[in-house]
């Protein structure tokens, strides 16, 4: 781990009128690190994620990303073309619903190839080889390459979305409830796959979820949010095994033990 953070968030705040989305959130994310954000519905975790990924403009604060070419840059104040370029190259965003992140009318291969073509790939053979390779890495049979995602199961759609996002070799992945809406066995496979990919590619990731099992498996560090504030943060095992804040204690104790 280097001492230069990949992403450093400083006093991010976003309000919706009088209602607080999130406020005064600061943290650093280092290369190769996976950060989990947990909290109940409405605690501001998705707002925070969208502010960081450039989908929402925060009212205050900085999101400084260590770009490949120009070093640390504040993505909130950078120009829109630059930010969109980042979101197609160094960033990836995995939506909770695969339908939001996929083009349902375009074949699986086209979905994976879109990001490549968006950054200038113009050789059909190369694009197709890369798409085939990535479908294999997310355990989708290569014979399905020309099928549309609408013919895929929910778990396959989610894996396809991940392949489509990782094909350009991003350094930072934002995930919004990546396992939400999937049944438990599919969730387990997806988590296993994600863990492998994150470790192999040395990705940094920020995972928003309300599923503590997901962060236990994937995240190195954990941030607990409530009413737009960070109430506790630290190493995942530390926070989950020895929760300090009353809300975190409630959260940890309300997980069903089978």
């Amino acid at each position: 781990m280097t001492d230069q953070p990949l992403l450093s968030v400083r006093k991010i705040a976003k309000t919706y009128g009088n209602h607080i989305g999130c406020e005064n959130v600061s943290f650093d994310l280092f290369p190769g690190e996976v950060m989990g954000i947990v909290g109940e519905s409405g605690s501001g975790k998705s707002t925070l994620l969208n502010c960081m990924a450039g989908h929402l403009t925060p009212d205050a604060g900085e999101v400084v990303f260590d770009t490949r070419v120009n070093g640390p840059r504040d993505t909130v104040t950078m120009s829109e073309p630059e930010r969109r370029m980042l979101s197609r190259t160094d960033w990836a965003f995995v939506h909770q619903h695969a339908r939001d992140g996929l083009r349902m009318g375009v074949s699986a291969g086209g979905n994976v190839g879109e990001r490549l073509m968006a950054v200038g790939a113009r050789n059909y053979g190369d694009i197709r080889d890369k798409a085939t390779d990535w479908l294999g890495r997310v355990e989708i049979d290569s014979s399905r390459i020309d099928d549309r995602p609408s013919t895929f199961s929910g778990g396959m759609q989610q894996r396809l979305q991940i392949a489509r996002n990782l094909v350009t070799g991003p350094r930072l992945v934002f995930m919004d409830e990546p396992t939400g809406g999937l049944d438990v066995s599919v969730q387990a496979r997806l988590l296993d796959l994600l863990r492998g990919l994150v470790r192999d590619m040395g990705l940094s990731a920020i995972i928003v979820t309300h599923d503590l099992a997901v962060v236990r498996l994937l995240a190195d560090r954990l941030m607990v949010m409530k009413s737009g504030q960070v109430v506790e943060n630290g190493l995942t095992d530390q926070v989950l095994d020895d929760p300090q804040h009353p809300y975190t204690q409630l959260l940890v104790s309300s997980v069903l033990q089978v």
Binding site: R88, R103, V106, S107, G109, G110, G113, E114, R115, M117, A118, V119, R122, Y124, I127, R128, I145, D146
Partner: peptide, 12 residues
């Protein structure tokens, strides 16, 4: 990039 996705779909 999206325009080429259309052509990609054609070829596939």
């Amino acid at each position: 990039g999206l325009m080429h996705v259309k052509l990609y779909e054609d070829i596939s």
